[in-house]
């Protein structure tokens, strides 16, 4: 698939790392600048989707196997809900992040927001890549040259 697009392949190789780095920045800097788990998850997924579009679905599935993608989509929800369960077990309300540092509630809030945003990011990445795999896995009726 697309063995002839040399410039696309070189540029993609250079961009994928940067896109992933930017996704991490958006994920973990969401407290201070625009962004958060939803946006970071989409940007992270875009890195793998771009890789898949240029190098073919098989290469992308080698890097990020479908079984892992599916499990990550569920794991993110588990992280989010688990954060709430942990705060329940510590004797606070569900998703009351003050539980994580009762002596300094705003630090507890930071930990809680960090955890749930991570859960959101993981789920969104998993779901977006899974949807891409589901679409790209179908046989394409249009040839590469027809575009």
């Amino acid at each position: 698939m697309m063995h002839h697009h040399l410039i696309l392949r070189v540029v993609t190789k250079m961009l994928v790392g940067t896109i992933i780095l930017f996704a991490f920045y958006v994920q973990f800097h969401g407290d201070f600048s625009p962004g958060g788990g939803f946006q970071a998850g989409v940007i992270m997924a875009v890195a793998f989707i771009l890789y898949g579009i240029v190098f073919g679905l098989n290469k992308a599935e080698e890097v990020f196997p479908p079984w892992l993608v599916h499990k990550l989509a569920a794991f993110g929800v588990l992280v989010y809900a688990g954060t709430g369960v942990v705060s329940l077990l510590l004797g606070y309300n569900f998703l009351d992040y003050n539980a994580f540092n009762p002596g300094h509630p705003s630090h507890g809030q930071h930990w809680g927001i960090f955890a749930v945003e991570l859960g959101v990011g993981i789920t969104v990445t998993g779901v977006m890549v899974a949807i891409y795999y589901a679409f790209a896995g179908r046989p394409p009726p249009i040839n590469d040259e027809d575009w």
């Binding site: 969401g30 407290d31 989509a73 929800v77 989010y80 709430g84 749930v116």
Partner: peptide, 27 residues
């Protein structure tokens, strides 16, 4: 909460329950 981005504090803390639902919807 001591988070400068109010959107994040509303989304993840004040309205954390709603965002849990949203994540479940995406899933």
């Amino acid at each position: 909460i001591d988070v400068p981005n109010v959107v994040t504090s509303v989304l993840a803390s004040y309205r954390g329950y709603d965002t849990l639902g949203e994540t479940a919807v995406v899933f």
